[in-house]
Amino acid sequence: MVPVSWYIGLGAILFMIGVSGVVLRKNIIIMLMGIELMLNSVNINLVAFSYYLNDIRGQIFAVFTITIAAAEVAVALGILISLVRNRGVFDVDKIDTMKG
């Protein structure tokens, strides 16, 4: 029997790896992958508690999270394509058109 804290710990580690991917990298594609990692770690937590409490709602929320992640990736990659087509940059530090 695996304790639930192991699952939550794994989720926390994956979340922090995703955060460091967003913070450390300048490549916008890798940043999007970091966001995917963070959403996945949240899913691990939801499903772990759903299993340990014998409550199906955690899995329903995980399904919704996966849906939101798919929609987010589609929109983000659309923005990325038009950005690269118009500006030709991947570096987020150079994207400062809307900076005040």
Binding site: I8, L53, N54
Partner: peptide, 21 residues
């Protein structure tokens, strides 16, 4: 990350029971 791990492993979660699951 280390802080997360310390809180999770050392907190009351480590004795979380399997409630009818």
């Amino acid at each position: 990350a280390v802080e997360f791990l310390v809180v999770i492993m050392g907190g009351s979660l480590s004795g979380f029971p399997l409630r009818g699951g």
